[in-house]
Amino acid sequence: MPVPKTPSGNRRQIDPEFADMINVQDHCKVDEVDEDNVYSVFVSYIEIYNNYIYDLLEEAPFEQIKPKPPQSKILREDQNHNMYVTGCTEVEVKSTEEAFEVFWRGQKKRRIANTQLNRESSRSHSVFIIKLAQAPLDADGDNVLQVNSGAGY
């Protein structure tokens, strides 16, 4: 079975704090991969709390004197009537393990509080977004072809 081409990069070690939470099947596979394309996977994680949208992956600088609360993001609609959150952090992941690590990192930032019925009630809704990008490669299979503006994949 062909292995999809991905840009070269260093393989990161999984954070030991999350390693025991990740249980990925070794026999995951991808069918019908077009070897004339390159693929990238990006993940985002947002939380909707009290009618505000927060980026759970945003790295905010920590201020000891007066920490700033996270800034709410804006929900928009594109020309095809698809909804999206502007300014949301997208993290490129190279493996299922990396995607789970990003997910758990965002989980730690969710707002939770005790209620009489549930010890860790989230009081929010969260959305873990997975985006797959595909781009055609040149005849040598080394570089992404430049596409005219207006053309999409």
Rank of each mutant, 00 (worst) to 15 (best):
P7A: 12
H125T: 05
D20A: 09
E97F: 02
S149W: 12
P67K: 14
L137A: 04
Y39S: 04
D55I: 05
P16C: 09
E59R: 12
M21P: 02
F128I: 06
F100T: 02
E63A: 10
A60L: 14
R105M: 07
N37L: 09
S40Q: 15
P70D: 04
Q116T: 10
H125D: 03
G106F: 01
I46G: 00
H125A: 06
H125C: 04
V127W: 03
T6K: 13
L137H: 02
I14C: 15
N51K: 13
V38H: 01
T89W: 02
L75V: 14
Q79K: 14
V41A: 02
S121C: 12
E90A: 05
V30Q: 13
S72K: 15
E58P: 04
A99K: 00
E97S: 02
A99H: 03
E120R: 10
V24I: 14
Y45H: 15
E59Q: 13
E92N: 14
A133P: 01
E17C: 05
V30G: 04
A113H: 14
I53C: 02
V43P: 02
I48C: 04
D138C: 05
N51C: 10
D15P: 05
E35I: 13
S122A: 08
R12M: 11
A19S: 13
R119C: 04
S121P: 05
V41M: 07
V33T: 13
E58A: 12
R76Y: 03
V144Y: 00
E59I: 07
E17D: 14
D138H: 03
V41G: 03
F18Q: 04
K109S: 11
S121M: 08
E17P: 00
Y52G: 07
P69D: 08
P136W: 00
H125R: 04
N23Y: 09
R119N: 09
T6N: 11
C28K: 11
E59H: 08
